[in-house]
Design a protein around this nucleic acid. Structure first.
Length: 553
DNA sequence: GCCGTTTTCGGCCCGACTGTTTTCAGTCG
């Protein structure tokens, strides 16, 4: 059993404890132990074998045996006991905003509520308002929260759509009558939030294909001779569009959308639209190929010159990478190796600053340890060039966390992690003040949004774009699929005002280094090319730029 | 439950916000 699995079990136990315990300390102890196990340098199995488990901070006589049992038998009787006390799916209630484990615990104890549907009924029957710690307003908020959660239920982040699309396409390949299949729709357009996955199938035997689709998706529903719906992975709606091979190009174009784009295309194109693929279709129509990402409306068909969009292989390095020094899951060495394995020439490490207490922000002394670690590890990974940075909080008054100590860093990502509900004016002033700090290199995730979870804070985009351009501060395109912030809808405007972008993964693990790819989706969708992205530049140019900026201070 | 030590219990615990309270609890980042 690996360290992360052990940590997940401890976290689950902590969750259950919170449901029943009145004080937070016991559950926090389990959470602390989980974090401790995650950050272990060595394998937890080895630690148990050598009887050194109890030397680990946060693991004592209570939690130690839990881990030991887990490692030896693969299960935890304590967790199983807890699971047996509550209905499965009790944590599903966490999807209702402002509903935490304490309140869920009360709802279950007093009203035996185990699901969102039951909660809605109880709130409508006015039973929730009477509970201790609840009231009329909380009850009202719960009902609103349920509505919010339901609306989200039918939406998915793009990576989920891409995964389902690929999976289904692979399964379709096994059906003999299918000559070709392509993922279309909003997934192909790389829209950040999707409702379904559209897949176009080329076949000469549509009936025989339709008869076999139930092997791939559930709840098959035949809409007409060419359209079939189903559900993949028991939650994601899939729409199949069937076409004869010589009509495949047009079918892909139509299913990719948007409708506005497809209609404008067909109006512009000739009458004979038979084509085996989209490239052929565009060629036949005498229209320059429009990348799917740019088809949200018909504007691109009016352009004379095609923009050259950025490609992931244009990226030479990246910034905004977290490590175990703050809230990352992997060590400095592991993150740097991941950057090298990606073929990068440089990588910027940036852990949190002290104001981000909940994320384990680093005090000055810890920064020194981290930088010594970076110095050691970067030697081993040469020629990879490592930049020592920070993701420092923009404090509520617009000053930067670390203050003058920002001099310790090669680069500074300035981000907001607190006081989200300021007015637009206040928030804009706060950010503008930070941008005037000459040590700030990059403005991190501009709006702090979490897709499908919470809206971003309010800002005046134009004023911030102008200030970034004026001060030469790079604007981050945060590639975390939950953020994708700055939004692609703002990129062209920002670029036209002279803003330079940087695509960052905001990686908290080796796996999340791939967020640089999702970052390029945003840039492409915004119509941005390599020239406008700072980290397409070579390592020498980047190093020189950073140094020049630092000495200007 | 863990930790530390004024050695066996008491403290752990950031800060804003909201709503429930009438001084605090729950949630969130």
């Amino acid at each position: 059993m690996d360290n992360f699995t052990v940590a997940r079990v401890l976290d689950e136990i902590a969750h259950y404890i919170q449901l029943s315990e009145t004080t937070p300390f016991k559950s926090r102890a389990f959470e602390r132990a989980a974090r401790s196990v995650e950050k272990l340098e060595q394998d937890v199995n080895a630690l148990v074998a050598s009887h050194k488990l109890l030397d680990t901070p946060g693991i004592g006589k209570g939690i130690g045996p839990v881990i030991e049992e887990l490692v030896k038998s693969g299960k935890s009787s304590y967790l199983e006991e807890l699971r047996a006390q509550y209905p499965p799916g009790i944590f599903d209630l966490l999807r209702v905003p402002n509903l935490g484990l304490k309140k869920i615990g009360v709802l279950y104890e007093r009203l035996a509520i185990t699901s969102i549907d039951e909660l809605e009924r109880a709130a409508k029957d006015n039973l929730v308002a009477a509970l201790p710690g609840f009231g009329a307003k909380t009850q009202q908020k719960i009902l609103q929260g349920i509505e919010f959660a339901r609306k989200r239920e039918s939406q998915f982040l793009l990576p989920a759509g891409l995964e389902v699309g690929e999976l289904v396409r692979e399964q379709l390949a096994a059906i003999e009558e299918i000559e070709d299949a392509e993922v279309a729709g909003s997934v192909r357009r790389r829209l950040e939030v999707i409702r379904n996955v559209n897949i176009v199938i080329a076949t000469r035997a549509p009936e025989r294909v339709i008869a076999q689709l139930s092997r791939i998706v559930a709840d098959v529903e035949v809409i007409d001779e060419t359209t079939v719906k189903g559900i993949a992975r028991s939650e994601v709606p899939v729409v199949f569009h069937l076409a004869y091979p010589d009509q495949f190009g047009l079918a892909v174009l139509r299913a990719t959308g948007t409708r506005e784009f497809a209609e404008a295309f067909e109006a512009k194109a000739g009458r004979d639209l038979a084509a085996r693929n989209e490239e052929q279709l565009f060629e036949k129509a005498g229209i320059a190929f429009v990348e799917p990402e740019l088809r949200e409306n018909a504007d691109e068909l009016k352009r004379k010159k095609r923009p050259k969009l950025i490609h992931p292989s244009d990226l030479r390095g990246t910034f905004h990478v977290h490590t175990t020094y703050s809230d990352g899951r992997n060590s400095v060495a592991e993150m740097l190796a991941a950057a090298r394995d990606r073929g990068f020439d440089y990588c910027g490490i940036s852990d949190h600053s002290p104001a981000a207490y909940y994320a384990g922000g680093l005090p000055k002394e810890r920064v020194k340890e981290q930088q010594a670690d970076i110095a050691r590890e970067s030697k081993k990974l040469a020629p990879l060039r490592v930049f020592r940075g920070t993701e420092a909080d923009i404090l509520p008054d617009g000053t930067m966390d670390y203050g003058d100590d920002l001099d310790m860093f090669d680069f500074v990502v300035a981000s907001i992690h607190s006081r989200f509900q300021m007015t637009e004016d206040e928030m804009t002033e706060r950010i503008l003040t930070a941008l005037d700090d000459p040590r700030v290199t990059i403005l991190g995730h501009l709006t702090g949004r979490r897709l499908l979870t919470r809206n971003g804070y309010l800002v005046n985009y134009d004023r911030i774009f102008d200030k970034c351009a004026e001060r030469g501060v790079l604007m981050e395109i945060n590639g975390n699929p939950q953020r994708l912030d700055l939004d692609w809808r703002h990129l062209r405007k920002a670029a036209s005002r002279g803003v330079m972008f940087v695509i960052n993964p905001d990686a908290h693990s080796v796996r999340e280094m791939s967020h640089v790819i999702s970052g390029t989706w945003v840039a492409r969708k915004g119509g941005i090319g390599a020239k406008e992205i700072f980290n397409t530049r070579g390592v020498d140019e980047v190093a020189e730029w950073l140094e020049k900026r630092a000495t200007k201070v």
